[in-house]
Design a protein around this nucleic acid. Structure first.
Lengths: 192, 192
DNA sequence: TAATTGACATACAGTGTGTATGTCAATTAT
DNA sequence: ATAATTGACATACACACTGTATGTCAATTA
């Protein structure tokens, strides 16, 4: 509303946007904050004021990406009829997202080593929780703990396929292959 | 044999050993090569002579860890009767290894971001290849490509459970839980 | 015994993070 | 309306670390 806070909001979002670009293209370690801030016409002072330090900025980027992913995945699910179909469609969408460089580098590669386990758990909790929720509807006879652990396994398997796609020579073909396999395996995992 | 080369072998292995310790406890980025070399009574000159640069040292550590893991896993498999049992036992052993700090930090967290995809693929190929091999015996009717992709999914799922264990408050309980889930899911995935 | 190689040390340059301090405009208070 | 104050951001500095270029000396070889 006021001029002051709107300017602040603007610089913050500009820094975040450029961070996404550089973290995605050069990785966390390869990104120099001097270059990052200069790209948007600022100095590192602004960055440290808003995000505390380099990891703070990275964490903010991860949270933004993650919430965007969760939004897209939830959106997909809502249009499906059965929880089984929802899980399958979710897997497919997840694998599609894995072809995006931002997701590959930031979420799938760097986040594990940069973030503290606690932060990581918080960031990834959305995805795992959604899968857990679906499983509890699909197999209500099992314990809630079993659902959580299974969701962890499934999420990890999908992530692994995503990375496999990312590093593949012919991504499009790999995506098809991964989707087929995910479909097959998930169908076996889910109780009929 | 000669005094010269044996001394060289000794320094190389000492550097590698200390690298394992520090990379495991402080992570890749948090490890200073000056401290590392001083710990074994050398300077960074020796390190750069033997390993080229920091990533070269890290890659050597990863290869060593990976070959040790592969050795242990192969050893386990050989004592099993059926390929199905072998896969289950392999999963169990893999989850046990996930409790070791060296594996957690170096293989499960830092390797993804530090190593180039090409190096990573080479390093992890042992594990995935072994699972692929087992699947081809278990389900000979499927294509070899399907086996590879499935192996990727399974390996990723197990790795995810491993990390979940690593970050858990009560690791022992988490190990039991993860093993039960892995057992259950793998049994469903494997054709009867 | 002289020549040479090479394992490792030393010295230096460059880059990058983080922090302490400064500045000036926007807000708030009188 | 003007003075006081906050805070968003810039500037400057200290420190740590990597990588490289060069030096040295013992072990090998001729």
């Amino acid at each position: 509303m006021t001029t002051r806070s709107s300017m602040m909001e603007k610089t913050r979002s500009e820094l975040l946007a450029q961070a996404r670009v550089l973290f995605a293209s050069k990785g966390f370690a390869g990104t120099a904050l001097e270059e990052l801030t200069a790209d948007v016409g600022l100095t590192r002072g602004a960055l440290y004021h808003h995000f505390g330090n380099k990891k703070g900025l990275f964490y903010a980027v991860v949270q933004q990406l993650d919430s965007e992913m969760d939004l897209r995945l939830r959106d997909i699910e809502r249009s499906e009829t059965s929880p089984q179909q929802a899980l399958l469609k979710r897997a497919e969408t997840y694998l599609d997202m894995a072809t995006e460089p931002e997701i590959q580098r930031i979420i799938l590669r760097d986040a594990q080593s940069v973030l503290e386990p606690e932060q990581l758990k918080k960031a990834a909790s959305g995805c795992v929780a959604s899968i857990t929720q679906l499983l509890s509807v699909i197999a209500p006879q099992q314990s809630s703990q079993a659902h959580k652990t299974s969701a962890q396994f499934i999420n990890g398997g999908l992530t692994s396929l995503a990375l496999w796609i990312a590093n593949h020579q012919v991504p499009d073909q790999a995506v098809d292959d991964a989707k087929r396999t995910a479909y097959e395996l998930l169908n076996r995992i889910m109780p009929a």
